[in-house]
Structure formats: C-alpha cells, structure tokens
Design a protein around this nucleic acid. Structure first.
Lengths: 179, 179
DNA sequence: TAACTCATGTAATTGGTTACATGATTCG
DNA sequence: CGAATCATGTAACCAATTACATGAGTTA
C-alpha cells in the first residue's frame, strides 16, 4: 500500500488533482514508485473515504472541472506513522537476470545489453542534470530537501551500477566473441 | 508472466517437483525472481495445461507422493522465443526512496538505514561466497554457466551499490547530527 | 483533419500475497 | 511433546496493468 504514502508525500509538497499527480508520477517521485492515472484516481478515492485527503471542486471554463486534493491532519499523522516504521527489503524481480540464466545465444543478449546500457545512461543524465540544478550545494541541505537529495543519490548510484553491470556483460561477451 | 520463464529455466537445469522448485526459489534463481510455493503450484498447473511441462507421479513410502515436472519441447521453444525478445526496463518500486522523500526525523531514518546496510552486507557475503565456490575461474566460462555468473555479478554489484547508498546517507546524517 | 492536452473515471484481468488445510515422519 | 521437514494444494484478497469511455480546446 505504498502508493498511498507516495501520494501523501507528493500532496505534502503541494496540493494537486489526480491529473497533476499523474504527471508528477511521470518523473520525480514516479522514478521510485511508478503509477498510472487510473491507479492514482482509485487510491485518491480510497484515501478520501479514509479521511487522509480532502478535495475541493474547481469549475473551469473551456476545460473539465478539477478536483484538487489536499492532505488532512489525519493523512499527515498516517504518513508519520508509516515513516517511523522500519522498511523491509523490497523484493527485486529482474527479467534481465532470469534471461541471463537462460543464456543460449550471445547475439540477442548483446543487443539487449546494449539497449539496456543506453537506457541507463539516459536516465543517469536526467538524474545528474536534476542534481546540478536543484542541489548545487548538498552540504547546505536540511529537512525534506535533504531527503529528496538522498533519494536522488540512490537513483544516480543505481543507474551507475546498471551501466557497470552492462559493461561487465559486454566485456565478457566480446572477449569470447573474438576468441 | 516471467515466473513462468524462471521456472522453465530452472527445469532446464534439472527436473523438479513444486516443492523442490520452491526451495530453489529460496536461493539461486529466487534472488532475482522470488516466488512462494503457492504461486509456483499455480503456474505449474497452468503450464502443464499449455503443454510446456509434463509431470510424472512418484509414489514414496513414509512421505507424500511427489509430482516431478520436466520441460517439454514446446516449453523449450517458448523459453527460446521469450529469450530472443528484448527485455523492457523493469520498474523499480522503492519504499525506502519514498520514505527518504518523506524525511522528517533523522533518528528513524538512521536506524532504518543501518538495518538496510547490514542486510545488503549479508546478502553480498552470500553472493561473494557463491562466486568463489562456483566460478573460481570466470574467464573459462561459457554457455549457461557464463550467463549464471553474469547474473550473479549483477547481484554483487547491486548489493555493493546498496551499501554505497546507505553509506552516503549515514555520512550526510552524521555530519549534520554533530553540527 | 489528425493528434495532443486537459480531466475524470469504470471494468476486466493478471500476478502475487496471505491465510488456511491436511497428514505422516523425524529431530531436539 | 513441540517444532521442523516433506508434499500438495484451495480460497480470499490486493495492487497494478490493460482496455475502454467521454468530450471540449489547442496545436501542427
């Protein structure tokens, strides 16, 4: 049920509609917890039922009405309760690792690995650009900004690790290819 | 539907019962695709229906009967088909990163991070022990063994990255704590 | 004129988790 | 005597994905 908390975190930063949240989840917090607009609308409805968020309807002309959600004191309390609990290790499920164990033909693995490396490099560039823009002086950070920066650092290290793994695979396969 | 393929990979290595597979998934391939025995039995039934695996019943005395599953030619073909397809990037969902963004109190994050670091170190030690025992001479590897080693390398790099992230967090928080 | 943005959803399905069930045998 | 191991499952539930739906306004 952590999408609940990801949405609460996002609403703490600023009130938003389901649509706004869906766009935020295309980047930012969505890098660590992806979610579709359908899923977000469902969770918002459930959380409103539970009293963790409240909505105000804004009529707009020329475009659809908008429901803006804000976090309630109960929602903030729930977020605190959740944040104080220890996090259990998240299960990793890697299609790619399973595919490596199914290894038969070097060519398909090579192509796959190169594509994967490129995707990691692209994401890494985004993260590094964000870091340079929003956190130019990390030692000055404190509170929620510090947390956001540390989360981003995790993303950066993760992408670098992904690239390093791809490079090991490419090196191993290329060494064998030329033998 | 990648549990299907993870099971097929495991059955390619050796025929097994649901129970055997469940134990294998507690280690080995389960490090990259965790699965419970319930889920495994369900998928085995579905794959038998589809003709990807076949089972033979073995009666045993003093203990329950055992259904041993083996991969069929159709199953092997399906595995090849799947392995030849490009892998799309797996979505990462990190409770811990979301929790960092919810950062309020340094003490709980510290405790959480230390526990997390210890879990990573433990898993890393297992991986490194496996590497030393089963792949003492990586340059000699080929075929499926090469794939398995490369998968394990990914695990090792992942745990090291996890530790490095925890260390960055601890450094940042401790620097602030003593200020 | 076709595609994209803004805005909100419902319905069906899949994959996985949690809880429950049974029953003999062996180990501490 | 209680816990763990061997062995197979069913049932209920939950989170997420995919497909479908509507409709005005803007941009290429």
């Amino acid at each position: 049920m952590a999408l609940d908390h990801a949405i609460l975190v996002s609403l703490t930063e600023r009130a938003a509609s389901g649509y706004d949240l869906a766009r935020r989840f295309d980047a930012s917090i969505g890098y660590f917890w992806p979610a579709s607009h359908q899923q977000i609308y469902k969770v918002l409805a459930r959380m409103q039922e539970a009293g963790w968020v409240e909505s105000t309807l804004q009529e707009q002309d020329g475009r659809p009405d908008k429901k803006t959600y804000a976090i309630t004191p109960d929602g903030a309390a729930e977020l605190d309760r959740w944040a104080a609990q220890p996090t259990e290790r998240e299960a990793l499920r890697s299609d790619f690792a399973v595919k490596l164990r199914a290894f038969r033909d070097a060519r398909t693995v090579l192509a796959d690995t190169r594509a994967r490396r490129a995707a990691h490099a692209e994401r890494l560039a985004e993260y590094e650009a964000s870091e340079a823009r929003f956190y130019p002086d990390p030692s000055a950070l404190d509170g929620p900004d510090l947390g956001s920066w540390l989360a981003l650092r995790g993303g950066i290290l993760g992408e670098r690790q992904g690239i390093a793994w791809c490079d090991e695979i490419l090196t191993a396969l290329e060494a064998r290819g030329s033998r």
